[in-house]
Simulated assay, not measured.
Amino acid sequence: MCVEDVEKLLNDRLRDLKIGGDFEDALHKEVDLVNSSLFTVEIEQAAPPKRFSTPCFTHFKENYDPESYLKHLKSVMIIYKAKDVLMCMVFIMTLQGASHDWFHTLPSRSTNNFKEVTFIFTKKYTFYRTIKKNFDHMFNLHKKHDESLKDYIKTFNVEKG
Rank of each mutant, 00 (worst) to 15 (best):
R109H: 10
H142P: 00
T130G: 07
R129C: 06
F127P: 01
T122M: 12
T122H: 04
T94M: 12
D101I: 15
M93F: 03
F121I: 05
L141Y: 05
T94P: 02
S110A: 14
S99F: 06
D101M: 10
A98F: 02
R129S: 10
S148G: 09
S110K: 07
K133N: 02
L141I: 14
D146G: 03
R109V: 00
T126F: 09
H145C: 02
K123G: 09
T126C: 12
T94L: 02
N140Y: 07
T94C: 14
T122K: 14
A98W: 01
H100D: 10
K123P: 00
M138Q: 04
M93Y: 02
H142V: 11
K124L: 08
K144N: 10
A98M: 05
T111M: 13
K143V: 07
F103R: 07
I131E: 15
T118W: 02
S108K: 14
Y125L: 04
E116F: 01
E147C: 09
S148N: 08
L106Q: 14
H145V: 09
K144Y: 11
D136S: 14
S148F: 12
I120R: 14
S99G: 06
D146T: 14
L106V: 04
F114E: 04
H142N: 03
N134H: 10
T105E: 14
D101R: 14
T122Q: 13
F121P: 03
T122I: 11
F103E: 02
H104R: 15
F103C: 12
N134V: 00
M138K: 04
F119Y: 09
W102T: 07
K143R: 15
E147A: 09
T122R: 14
I131F: 12
K124C: 11
K123H: 09
I131D: 11
I131K: 15
